[in-house]
Design a protein around this nucleic acid. Sequence first.
DNA 1: CGTTCCCTTGAAATATTTCAATTATAGTGG
DNA 2: CCACTATAATTGAAATATTTCAAGGGAACG
Lengths: 279, 279
Amino acid sequence: VSTSFAELRSAPNSSYASAEAGRQRAGHLWSSLADVCNLLQIAPGSASADRDIVFQHVQFKAGQRIFTIGQPFDMLYIVNSGFLKTVLLDDAGNEQVLGFPMKGDLLGTDGIHQKKYASEAVALTSCDIVMVPFKILTSLSRRYPEMEMALYSAISRELVREQVMLNMLGSLSAEARVARFLMSLSERFSAMGYSGKEFNLRMTRQDIGSYLGLTLETVSRTMSAFDRMGFIAVDGRAVVLKEPQTLRTLRRLPPSKAKAKKIAVESDIIAPSEKALAA
Amino acid sequence: VSTSFAELRSAPNSSYASAEAGRQRAGHLWSSLADVCNLLQIAPGSASADRDIVFQHVQFKAGQRIFTIGQPFDMLYIVNSGFLKTVLLDDAGNEQVLGFPMKGDLLGTDGIHQKKYASEAVALTSCDIVMVPFKILTSLSRRYPEMEMALYSAISRELVREQVMLNMLGSLSAEARVARFLMSLSERFSAMGYSGKEFNLRMTRQDIGSYLGLTLETVSRTMSAFDRMGFIAVDGRAVVLKEPQTLRTLRRLPPSKAKAKKIAVESDIIAPSEKALAA
DNA sequence: CGTTCCCTTGAAATATTTCAATTATAGTGG
DNA sequence: CCACTATAATTGAAATATTTCAAGGGAACG
């Protein structure tokens, strides 16, 4: 089931590579409007009949930026293949990871407001990206109402996704955040037709930590703990989900219970398999 | 300068009042398209000439819900006056505060995607809200391109606002979050023509804490600390900003410095005014 | 004028970070 | 192809920020 995840994963994470931002070279592929609708999981409606409009693809290598903060906005991007991260940069140049776009995701919508991109997108692996000029999209909206709704819907979905993240950062423990992160990846891989049970992380612990509002050490420790508890098997970037249901519902290791376990372990009265949990 | 903030502020915070959700009574006011553009701070363009379309207002009292999670989406709302909070509810019924909309803010855009509202809006004070049927807005978009852009722009702005919140929750200390929250309120009050220096909080410490990913006690303590340090004067919900510049740039009390101060205080070698900071 | 909710403050508990050292992994160039 | 270097991941121990628990006082509302 799981397709070859053994692609390159260079991601040199070069902090200030805005020089290399932009198009690497003219892509060789083109997509029709129907292709794009399909990628975005939109019912194409009558718009799919439009054969006049095609969209160019561009390829990016790991580490390259699709667009950068402040760059004039005129284009939306749709991921056709590959994995990316979107980030905000503070004045000190520190990255705040906002998300990990993959196949079917729409990028760049945050640029509409100020006519400049508010975040930047970095390729974590080789990527194939469809370029969609915003002007063309709005003109299509006028001709095909279902395209209009699709665009609103895509942006609205992004909004909801961020709301869920805010909720997560505002209310969940480190364990719960990591657990949900893994499940979210799992679901997205499944939706793409890959295995939701076994997959490779494309981002560093640092990236995950930034995304979840945690330090990389906490992420590492939490994953190791999940491994010891038998919820997952983790080896570097390779992850196997063994108890998805546990991960899905994990909110926090109940403090009272945890305390009880700790005491129990100290007095050696519980099974060794449970010691890992309290350790 | 500061207008009468001494309105009612009941906000009984009644957790499950979905029964009272919806329109309180038919409003007596109506807005033209030009009024709406003005409220949203949009250049009206040719659309303002359209006198055929008017939008109804509705009044809400503190504690009432403008819309609730899961309710079928067909309407956007624009705040004409009053203060609200938008919240997410988890399965246990706990509120996660997403924002504090006020005059000029657009509500309900998160409902576009699933055709159901993803969050709910609760009045914190009496509110006057303009109802804008989404269908009418999209039909206007087709007639007036500047209306189309205005709508995209408003949603995009919301997206950026949430990104900034994610950054805040992911990377800032409790002190920095509270400081930025106060400055953000200040700027919004200023933009509305009120005093940005002195204002009343319309939300509880609980609400602020939820919004900032902190407990209400931490919010209270942090504000008290700012007061002791002379950055603000706080008395319940009344706030006076005394050193906005300090608040604006506050990232975290530098640990090394804080430690130095602590030691200094313990050995009684620094000025009393500085003791508050280390205490 | 009592009841309820809200705010403040302290002290102890605890989750998470920070600092530091070690091992693994991937990409580079001889 | 191998060694070399830089980046990434793991883990421990100590430091620290924030939460939790608890109690008292204050403001608002009916």
